[in-house]
Structures are given as C-alpha cells and as structure tokens.
Amino acid sequence: MTVLPKDIPGDSLKVTVGTANGKPGDTVTVPVTFADVAKMKNVGTCNFYLGYDASLLEVVSVDAGPIVKNAAVNFSSSASNGTISFLFLDNTITDELITADGVFANIKFKLKSVTAKTTTPVTFKDGGAFGDGTMSKIASVTKTNGSVTIDP
C-alpha cells in the first residue's frame, strides 16, 4: 500500500482569532474563523484551546458560528481559569461536516476595569488537533492569535 501526501505544500487550514475593542463593562464579541476549508477536504472534527487573561476578560458565552451545522449536538465549549476549550465533531461522520469558510465560534467577553488603554492577547495554547471530512488528521493548520483592547 502506498500512502501519498494529501496536502499540497503551502496549503493549510487557517484558524484565526479576531479582535475587538471596548470600554470597561462593555461586552464584545471576538470571532474565531476558519478559511481554506474546502482545500483541506472539509473539517469533520477539531479540538483546540485559547488562552486569555482572566483578570482583564470575563467569558460571558461561547457560541457556535454559522458554519457549524447542528451545533447543539456537534459543538461544545467550556471556559475557566483563562482557557477556553473548543470541540467539534460531526456526529453523523459525513452529513454535518464544516464545508465552508466563515465564523466557527463567537466568544463574548465582558471587559474588566483598567486604568490605561490595554491590549490583551487571545492566543492559541498547545494541544488539540483538526481532522478532515474523512477524519484524517489535517497536518497543516495555520493559527493566528487575536486580541481585545480595553480603553477606559
């Protein structure tokens, strides 16, 4: 049996954390987006972790974005102690894959008090994996961190 590389060099799934701005007490939304989904033969499963400074940001909610089908079954998240974990699994293993680019999740943060303008990162942590529509590992994932700026 011969195994051929399935990824064209330079191609990767792009996962990007967005940015937001606000004043202390505001609730802002930071999107997590996927790009080049079709090039990577869709997404059938993924789990990953984001870190944030809990002294500056309070997670209000984490909701599935419009590219997630049947989110009540296929999407899960949790947030505590400065870490947000995400889990997606197409429970049907074929019919509810992520097949389009767009917003995977929206994180709502309540901004805490600061004395001066502060930009705090929302960054990928170690761990996690992504699988394509056949549940094979997506070897190349380009992750881009985001941030939230609090301006009193």
Rank of each mutant, 00 (worst) to 15 (best):
2 T>R: 08
4 L>C: 12
4 L>T: 12
4 L>D: 13
5 P>C: 06
6 K>E: 09
6 K>I: 14
7 D>F: 14
8 I>L: 12
8 I>P: 08
9 P>G: 14
9 P>K: 14
9 P>R: 10
10 G>T: 09
11 D>I: 12
11 D>P: 11
12 S>D: 12
12 S>R: 12
12 S>C: 14
13 L>Q: 09
14 K>A: 13
15 V>R: 06
16 T>M: 12
16 T>I: 14
16 T>E: 08
17 V>F: 14
18 G>P: 10
18 G>S: 10
18 G>L: 13
19 T>S: 10
20 A>P: 12
20 A>E: 09
21 N>C: 13
22 G>N: 14
22 G>D: 08
23 K>N: 11
23 K>Y: 13
23 K>P: 10
23 K>F: 09
23 K>E: 10
24 P>S: 11
25 G>E: 12
25 G>L: 10
26 D>T: 12
26 D>I: 13
27 T>K: 09
28 V>H: 09
28 V>K: 13
29 T>G: 14
29 T>E: 12
30 V>R: 07
30 V>L: 13
30 V>G: 08
31 P>Q: 11
31 P>Y: 07
32 V>F: 08
32 V>R: 02
33 T>I: 11
36 D>F: 14
36 D>H: 11
37 V>P: 12
38 A>E: 10
39 K>E: 14
41 K>T: 12
42 N>M: 09
43 V>Y: 01
43 V>L: 07
43 V>R: 00
44 G>N: 00
44 G>L: 14
44 G>M: 14
44 G>A: 03
45 T>V: 13
46 C>Q: 04
46 C>M: 14
48 F>K: 04
49 Y>F: 05
50 L>V: 08
50 L>I: 08
50 L>A: 08
51 G>S: 10
51 G>L: 07
52 Y>T: 13
53 D>T: 11
53 D>C: 06
59 V>P: 09
59 V>D: 07
60 V>E: 10
60 V>H: 12
61 S>Q: 14
62 V>N: 08
62 V>E: 13
63 D>H: 13
64 A>I: 08
64 A>Y: 14
64 A>L: 00
67 I>S: 11
67 I>N: 09
68 V>E: 12
69 K>E: 10
69 K>G: 08
73 V>K: 05
73 V>P: 11
73 V>I: 14
75 F>M: 07
76 S>D: 14
77 S>I: 14
79 A>D: 15
79 A>R: 15
82 G>V: 15
83 T>K: 15
83 T>S: 14
83 T>E: 05
84 I>G: 01
84 I>C: 14
84 I>A: 00
85 S>Q: 00
85 S>F: 04
86 F>V: 04
86 F>H: 02
86 F>G: 03
90 D>N: 03
92 T>G: 03
93 I>E: 02
94 T>L: 08
95 D>W: 01
96 E>V: 04
97 L>T: 05
97 L>I: 06
98 I>W: 01
99 T>R: 06
99 T>H: 07
100 A>P: 05
100 A>K: 04
101 D>E: 06
101 D>P: 05
101 D>H: 08
101 D>Q: 03
102 G>W: 03
103 V>E: 00
103 V>G: 05
104 F>E: 04
104 F>N: 01
105 A>I: 03
105 A>K: 01
105 A>T: 13
105 A>R: 01
105 A>G: 07
106 N>C: 03
107 I>L: 04
107 I>Y: 02
107 I>P: 01
109 F>D: 00
109 F>K: 00
109 F>E: 00
110 K>S: 04
111 L>E: 01
116 A>I: 06
117 K>L: 04
118 T>M: 07
118 T>S: 09
119 T>C: 13
120 T>G: 06
120 T>E: 13
123 T>F: 12
125 K>A: 01
125 K>N: 02
126 D>A: 15
127 G>Y: 00
128 G>V: 03
129 A>H: 00
129 A>P: 00
129 A>Q: 00
132 D>S: 07
133 G>S: 03
134 T>E: 06
134 T>G: 02
135 M>K: 03
135 M>G: 02
136 S>P: 01
138 I>C: 09
138 I>L: 02
139 A>K: 14
139 A>L: 07
140 S>T: 10
141 V>A: 03
142 T>P: 05
144 T>E: 06
144 T>S: 07
145 N>V: 05
145 N>P: 05
145 N>K: 07
146 G>C: 05
146 G>E: 01
147 S>F: 06
148 V>N: 06
150 I>R: 14
151 D>V: 15
